[in-house]
Simulated scan of single mutants.
Amino acid sequence: MAAQIPESDQTKQFKEFLGTYSQLTETCYLNSVKDFTTREVKPEEMKEALATKAGPLGQSG
C-alpha cells in the first residue's frame, strides 16, 4: 500500500505547481508575443522560454 500524503501537503504542492505553471505560461506568452497589433507568434522564442523553465517543472519536491 502506498503511503498517504497529508491533505495539507497535497494542497501546498498543488499551489506550488499552479504558481510555477502560471509563471511558465506568462513567460512563454510574453516571450512569444512581442507586437500586440498583429497575430504573429515567434515559436523560436517560445522554445527558449520553455527550455529555461523546464528545469523547475521537472524536479520533484
Results as ranks from 00 to 15, higher is better:
residue 1 M to I: 08
residue 1 M to C: 07
residue 1 M to K: 08
residue 2 A to L: 13
residue 2 A to W: 09
residue 4 Q to A: 14
residue 4 Q to W: 08
residue 4 Q to H: 09
residue 6 P to C: 02
residue 7 E to S: 10
residue 8 S to V: 06
residue 9 D to V: 03
residue 10 Q to N: 07
residue 10 Q to A: 10
residue 12 K to E: 15
residue 12 K to H: 09
residue 12 K to Y: 13
residue 12 K to W: 11
residue 12 K to T: 11
residue 13 Q to G: 06
residue 14 F to L: 15
residue 14 F to P: 00
residue 14 F to V: 05
residue 14 F to A: 15
residue 14 F to K: 11
residue 15 K to V: 12
residue 16 E to A: 12
residue 16 E to R: 14
residue 16 E to V: 06
residue 16 E to L: 13
residue 17 F to E: 04
residue 18 L to Q: 15
residue 18 L to G: 01
residue 19 G to D: 10
residue 19 G to P: 00
residue 20 T to Q: 14
residue 20 T to K: 15
residue 21 Y to A: 15
residue 21 Y to H: 12
residue 21 Y to E: 09
residue 22 S to C: 07
residue 22 S to K: 14
residue 25 T to G: 08
residue 25 T to I: 02
residue 25 T to A: 15
residue 26 E to A: 13
residue 26 E to N: 14
residue 27 T to G: 01
residue 27 T to M: 09
residue 27 T to K: 13
residue 28 C to E: 04
residue 28 C to L: 10
residue 29 Y to S: 10
residue 30 L to M: 07
residue 30 L to D: 12
residue 31 N to S: 15
residue 31 N to Y: 05
residue 32 S to C: 14
residue 35 D to Q: 03
residue 35 D to I: 02
residue 35 D to S: 02
residue 36 F to M: 01
residue 37 T to W: 00
residue 37 T to Q: 03
residue 38 T to P: 00
residue 38 T to V: 03
residue 38 T to F: 02
residue 38 T to G: 02
residue 39 R to W: 04
residue 39 R to H: 05
residue 39 R to T: 07
residue 39 R to D: 06
residue 40 E to T: 11
residue 40 E to I: 08
residue 40 E to Y: 04
residue 40 E to F: 03
residue 41 V to N: 01
residue 41 V to M: 06
residue 41 V to A: 03
residue 42 K to C: 06
residue 42 K to S: 07
residue 43 P to T: 03
residue 43 P to M: 01
residue 45 E to A: 04
residue 45 E to T: 02
residue 45 E to G: 01
residue 46 M to V: 13
residue 46 M to A: 13
residue 46 M to E: 12
residue 47 K to I: 14
residue 47 K to N: 08
residue 47 K to Y: 10
residue 48 E to S: 03
residue 49 A to M: 00
residue 50 L to C: 10
residue 50 L to Y: 08
residue 50 L to S: 02
residue 51 A to V: 05
residue 53 K to L: 13
residue 53 K to H: 13
residue 54 A to H: 09
residue 54 A to L: 11
residue 55 G to T: 11
residue 55 G to K: 15
residue 56 P to T: 06
residue 56 P to L: 02
residue 56 P to Y: 01
residue 57 L to R: 04
residue 57 L to N: 02
residue 58 G to N: 11
residue 58 G to H: 05
residue 59 Q to G: 05
residue 59 Q to T: 08
residue 60 S to D: 10
residue 60 S to M: 13
residue 61 G to L: 09
residue 61 G to Y: 09
residue 61 G to Q: 12
